[in-house]
Amino acid sequence: MNTPTLLLDGLPVPFSAGQTIMEAATAAGVFIPHLCHHPDFKPQGSCKLCTVKANGRYVSACTMPAKDGMEVENDSPDLNDKRRTLLQMLFVEGNHFCPSCEKSGDCLLQALAYELEMLTAHFAQFYPDRPVDASHPDVLLDFNRCILCELCVRASRDVDRKNVFALSGRGIGKHLIVNAESGRLADTGFSLADKAAHVCPVGVILAKRQGFLQPIGQRRYDRQPIAMQFASLPGSGGNGPEA
């Protein structure tokens, strides 16, 4: 029997039935930019960073099943321009201040900005006012950096079975909330041991008092650009910090 194969930027990539384009690419060591995708969770296709062109149509690589003979365009100027614009919008919607952010070097958003050569924010900053939640003894929530990927929502609901997080509001008013009457993390069953405490790709859900213990320069994306990490570790395809 023939292994089904798609063509990714002209490169034949075999896959097994049921895999998405993202999964097939990751297994082959090819990086497709993504934010809301994580190999441990059901894809939800919301951030659109993974947009590729499959047989001439824009689709989300993380949700689109791979098909035999499919021609997929990934690393092209057109797609990378669109992705860069999406990143720029994410940067201005929140308060992303990399020089003093403790997640710097371990942050997927920052790593993608480097990868896609985002040199400026381009759009005007929104400077939203988002107070932090420091009520929990072990975990700080800094909503300033939330990109609404819902990984914490999925992890808390599907793995931890605690349903601590949810998105609320619509459009530009959409934001992450904590499921407690008070709205405070301390009033939930959340624990630092939860899966949801370790999936945030940016610097929202943070173990307290750990901030700069690991020197800048020795962090995950300091060591090697993200795309190269996929090439050297085919199959890993992580999103967020190495546990």
Binding site: P99, S100, E102, P131, V132, L206, R209, Q210, G211, F212
Partner: peptide, 14 residues
């Protein structure tokens, strides 16, 4: 004010 203390030594360098 309102920032976690461990961030301060990095932030004040600005």
């Amino acid at each position: 004010q309102g920032r976690p203390y461990w961030e301060v030594p990095v932030m004040v360098q600005r």
